[in-house]
Design a protein around this nucleic acid. Structure first.
Length: 420
RNA sequence: GGAGAGAUGGCCGAGUGGCUUAAGGCGCACGCCUGGAAAGCGUGUGGGCGGGCAACCGUCUCGAGGGUUCAAAUCCCUCUCUCUCCGCCA
């Protein structure tokens, strides 16, 4: 959520940001309601002031056994007017709030402007894709041949976009989770969190999934939502809190399963592990001082990249253009890992700064060194998506005989196993 | 799931309609005192919104939301959460 005062005082900044995003949101309805709200507030607060003062006088008279009938009669009129105005105010504020919740974040100045995916900019590549002396298999074919991925039985149990991992496949998935968590909590200094996988609507609103993106989420009959990413519970850990300056930055790493309805992605990535309703992810989340957030985002993506470096998987980093940027994000880097069978790089991590957008929605503040309470900046990124990582290992490390070599770094987590 | 008890400021805790602008204590900050410190004494101490250049003023905030009343921490209704006991359960 944007700062109301920014929209009020510098609407041209917000309008320009919306233009860069190619958003069709119109600010005039917001501005009208904002003006109305302040008019109502000024009137109703003056009346409440009067009511408070007169109540004091009435109380005094009653105690002294004096008559206060005319004052009470007068206050009846004032009170009913207050009630009217409060009702109008409530409607006005509800409108204002729902408008505010639908305005996306302002992209940072270094985000390239664009009209679609094709305008994202590649920043760097790490390592060279291996050249194969044979035709590499897709991970779904390889996984089925090795009997470690079972798409058919996944469909039997749940439906399309669900997979069963078996034997060495299940072990590899678990090894990746542990390897990533150990790296981030050990070398990189994150604190491990194991949060609930279901959250309430307030948490989803805090990080920006609600109210706009409800159709992407799974919801229980009892009103809970299944988390689409650990970002939701972990960022909301500190909802409605004021943190101490000394505690920043707060750095958390969390493994969770993630659940996505994948509405609107019919026909996309229908085979394999790339697009599942349920997948595993290790997520990195930071709460920082505003002045540190740019540097902390760079550190976070370096932490995520190191996972791929240690696994020896070639990747590239791109920065998303304004049109491809998520609703809550001010700046997003994607890490894309090489998939040899398709011959292209595919997203395996998305690292974003949300500036104060989520913090304002979730009420996450800190007391700065100067004593002011300010909103923190929130940052998060995948470190990494586990299923896609497993798929990348299968494809990049396959042998001509249809086996898979386990990267050195993972072997301690695989009971010393070197090959599947 | 059943029964009962609770939820008050950073923390503890008083408060059954107006004298509460939330008592008192602890903590914290600053000052006095001191060679320095402790103790002691004094002062201050949340957040949101609105107005104002500012100092400051107003308003809201006693788990949440409604209601009664001229007036609600206090009375009524609904909900949430916590604790205790019972039941069920990985």
């Amino acid at each position: 959520m944007l700062d109301m005062k920014l929209i009020r005082q510098n609407p041209e900044i917000v309008a320009e940001a919306l233009r860069r995003r190619h958003s069709d949101i119109d600010l005039t309805k917001f501005q009208e309601n904002d003006r109305l709200r302040r008019e109502l507030l000024i009137e109703v607060e003056a009346l409440k002031n009067k009511r408070n003062e007169f109540s004091r006088v009435i109380g005094e008279r009653k105690r002294n056994k004096q008559n206060a009938d005319e004052l009470i009669a007068e206050m009846q009129v004032v009170s009913s007017r207050i009630k009217e105005l409060d009702e109008q105010l409530q409607v006005c504020e509800a409108t204002l709030n729902s408008l505010l919740l639908e305005i996306p974040n302002i992209p940072l100045p270094d985000v390239p402007e664009g009209i679609g995916e094709q305008d994202n900019v590649e920043l760097r590549r790490w390592s060279e894709p291996r050249s194969f002396a044979f035709e590499p298999l897709a991970h779904w074919d390889l996984g089925e041949k090795l009997d470690i991925l079972d798409f058919e039985r996944g469909a039997r149990l749940a439906g399309a976009r669900f997979t069963v991992m078996k034997g060495a496949g299940a072990l590899l998935e678990r090894a990746l989770v542990n390897f990533m968590l150990d790296l981030h909590t050990g070398k990189h200094g994150y604190r491990e969190i194991f949060p609930p996988f279901l959250v309430n609507a307030d948490a989803m609103t805090g990080t920006g999934q609600l109210p706009k993106f409800e159709e992407d989420l799974f919801k229980t009959t009892t009103g809970y939502y299944l988390i689409p990413t650990a970002e939701v519970p972990v960022t909301n850990l500190h909802r409605e809190e004021i943190l101490d300056d000394n505690d920043l930055p707060v750095c958390y790493a969390a493994y969770t399963a993630c659940f996505r309805a994948e509405a609107g992605s019919y026909g996309k990535d229908t085979r394999g592990l790339i697009r599942q309703h349920q997948f595993n992810k290790v997520e990195l989340v930071k709460l920082t001082r505003p002045e540190d957030s740019a540097a902390e985002l760079e550190k976070l993506i370096a932490d995520a990249e190191e996972v791929l470096q240690l696994l020896g998987l070639p990747y590239r980093v791109i920065i998303l253009c304004t049109a491809d940027l998520g609703f809550s994000s001010a700046k997003t880097y994607d890490i894309e890992v090489w998939f040899p069978q398709q011959g292209l790089y595919r997203e395996i991590s998305s690292c974003s700064s949300f500036t104060d957008f989520q913090a304002r929605r979730a009420g996450i503040r800190y007391r700065s060194a100067s004593g002011r309470t300010e909103y923190v900046h929130t940052i998060n990124g995948s470190g990494l998506a586990v299923g896609r990582c497993l798929a990348a290992i299968l494809e990049n490390y396959q042998t001509e005989g249809g086996n898979v070599i386990i990267p050195e770094a993972l072997r301690p987590y695989m009971g010393g196993k070197g090959i599947i």
